[in-house]
Amino acid sequence: MSEPAPRDTFNIRLRRLSHYVTNAVIVGIIRTGLALPYAARIRSVGWVVQHVIGPVAGYRKRALDNLALVRPDLTPQARAQIASACLNNVGRTFIENYSADDFPRRMARNVPRGAGVEPLRAATDNGQAVILVTGHFGNYEATRAALVAQGYNIGGLYRDMKNPYFNAHYVKTMEAFGGPVFPQGRRGTAGFVRHLKDGGLLVLLFDQHVQKAPILDFMGQPARTAVSAAELALRYNALLIPFYGLRQPDGLSFDTVLEAPVPHSDPETMTLALNDSLSARVRDNPEQWFWVHRRWRSHES
């Protein structure tokens, strides 16, 4: 194998340095936040992401662009308010998920509600697999933490971050909430499927762009949407239950909700039902969805 060209070597080193510096800043924010009392911690990091990191990193602009696409009916001022609140929620969610002791302990007080609670209990009693599906809304870890406190063993599938330094400790935060976590890819999928076959519970987030995935309606716009959760549910006769952790007006507590299982049919129909479920939640609480993702991209990608 030939040695990389000097220019390529320089770019690799520059990218590595960029990842290192970015992670150092993130770790600094985490450590500073964790040194504060819980409520001050959540509010402070929410403020920092809303007013500093979000605008500098381009997340605010991306949120505004997405809002202009999906909600042209709103005034620019209303979209700006949603974008600001969205960034605040992103920051709060980030530091909550790094509060590996405090956040799960607080969520243990929550009793999940909704039409999916009894089907979940019956399925686990009977050894039937369950796939819990949600989006980047509210805090997606709130309900998992509440269920883990009730004795459920819930695994998850995650997408590796591009920054390897950040990814190393990010994965540990997910493991702290209980249950095994698996990286996307052949190795992770094998463990994920094995956990499912054994009647385990798994969490999937399905609301990000996936190349080559089917184009389905999401909030009135065509979006490439992974149908893997529905495919797994059909293949392993698993319940497919949408769930949400809705942030409450105090900014610190959550309503943890399990919706009714999505009926088995075909992957695209089932995934459309998931899209419709999340869309309804976003319509009711638009500031709680992560508008910062590149959800709607070219159909050619």
Rank of each mutant, 00 (worst) to 15 (best):
M1K: 11
P6M: 10
F10G: 08
R13F: 14
R13N: 14
R15I: 09
V21N: 07
V21R: 08
V25C: 10
I30Y: 02
L34D: 04
L34A: 07
A35D: 06
R41T: 02
I53A: 13
A57H: 09
R60M: 05
R71I: 01
R71V: 02
D73N: 13
A78N: 06
Q81A: 15
A83M: 04
C86E: 09
I95S: 03
A100W: 01
D101K: 11
D101R: 12
P104M: 03
R105H: 11
R109G: 06
V111L: 08
V117G: 05
A123R: 00
T124C: 07
Q128W: 03
L132R: 08
T134P: 11
G135C: 08
G135H: 07
A142G: 06
T143W: 00
R144V: 09
L147W: 02
Q150A: 06
I154E: 08
K172C: 03
G178C: 06
G178K: 08
R187V: 12
V193G: 08
V193F: 06
D198I: 00
Q208M: 13
Q211T: 14
G220V: 07
Y236L: 04
I241V: 12
F243K: 02
F243C: 08
Y244V: 14
D255Y: 01
T256L: 11
T256Y: 05
V257M: 10
A260W: 00
P261K: 00
V262M: 10
S265C: 11
L272Q: 15
L274V: 01
L274H: 01
E287H: 12
E300A: 12
